[in-house]
């Protein structure tokens, strides 16, 4: 009796509070085939959504209506309705989608097909494929320039950042970076493209106009062997001043000065930190920690890790609503 009462009460409470007020973070759990929904006010997991196999890349649509999650082993991208928090549809992503990105209008989706050396272009509203571009071996990182003109894809075994002109859908440049490039992020003003190299252990800062590497940022953590430092996720603050780089099995997030490119600080988070997302006010940064099966919450102003939260198995990606 008692039990039932408590249980019902909590369900109702969640039902009432959840959709209206709080901003939600969605975390893809690669191994448990679920997405954890986290309330960013209370920092509690409020729901676990069952999705397809091997969920990795995850992102809100620009209008915050859907959360898209690439389920690679099912060869599709699932659409989660952000209101009902249920899977309501899917997008024809092509085989083995891993990471994807939207154009600035939120109309087109560009998907890296890891097993196919291809980038697939999808019309989100119509849920149809518009075309494909052949890229390097194991395409992964995907980012569109702030002006919407260029898509940059990184390929893990080719070790290049491919610059694809979105009007012609042709590759216009390839920039060689260090081994196993994982992720790319533009500064909000479009002046720099940062690309992480997981095995190379560096972040290349690329001049997107000249297609050259301006600088390579290296990391050194006392007491930690160099091989354990493996940069993956990159998040740049909207003023371009702070850059956060997830260092994988180093279990740390590097904070880099966006202007001088100096490393300011290393923040100890969970094990094998992979991807990250800011809350809309940029007060907090959420990191996924694949081996410790949790997420860490970083206070961006004080540069301190303030909380960690258990999620599913092998948390990989995270996305947070923009509004």
């Amino acid at each position: 009796m008692m039990w039932r009462g408590v249980f019902l009460g909590s369900v109702i409470a969640i039902g009432l509070v959840q959709p209206a007020a709080a901003v939600m973070a969605y975390v893809s759990n690669e191994k448990s085939n679920t997405v954890s929904v986290i309330d960013t006010d209370s920092w509690q997991v409020v729901k676990t959504i069952k999705v397809g196999q091997r969920p990795r890349g995850i992102a809100f649509t620009k209008d915050d209506k859907y959360v898209l999650v690439a389920v690679g082993d099912d060869d599709t991208i699932q659409m989660i309705d952000a209101k009902s928090q249920e899977v309501v549809g899917e997008l024809p992503s092509g085989p083995d989608p891993e990471l994807f990105t939207e154009d600035p209008d939120g109309k087109l989706l560009y998907v890296a097909n890891e097993n196919d050396n291809t980038v697939t272009i999808i019309d989100i509203d119509k849920r149809t494929q518009l075309g494909a571009v052949q890229v390097g071996v194991e395409p992964e990182g995907m980012v569109v320039s702030p002006d919407g003109k260029i898509l940059v894809n990184t390929s893990e075994t080719t070790n290049m950042a491919h610059f694809i002109d979105l009007a012609s859908r042709k590759i216009v440049a390839n920039v060689l970076v260090d081994s196993r490039p994982r992720f790319g992020a533009f500064k909000p003003d479009g002046s720099e493209l940062w690309v992480s190299s997981e095995i190379g252990g560096t972040v290349s800062v690329i001049d997107p106009a000249k297609h050259v590497v301006k600088q390579k940022i290296a990391f050194a953590i006392p007491g930690l062997r160099a091989e354990a430092i493996q940069p993956v996720g990159i998040n740049i603050s909207s003023d371009g001043k702070k850059v956060f780089v997830a260092l994988g099995p180093a279990n740390r997030v590097a904070v880099v000065d966006g202007v001088t490119h100096d490393v300011i600080k290393y923040l100890l988070v969970g094990q094998r930190v992979w991807h990250m997302a800011f809350t809309p006010d940029e007060k907090y940064l959420v990191t996924t920690n694949g081996v410790s099966n949790d997420v860490s919450i970083i206070d961006v102003a004080s540069l301190k890790v303030v909380k960690s939260l258990q999620v599913g198995e092998l948390p990989w990606g995270v996305t947070i609503a923009r509004h």
Partner: peptide, 8 residues
């Protein structure tokens, strides 16, 4: 890198 870009 410049050389690579030109090649392409």
């Amino acid at each position: 890198c410049v050389a690579a870009a030109l090649c392409v």
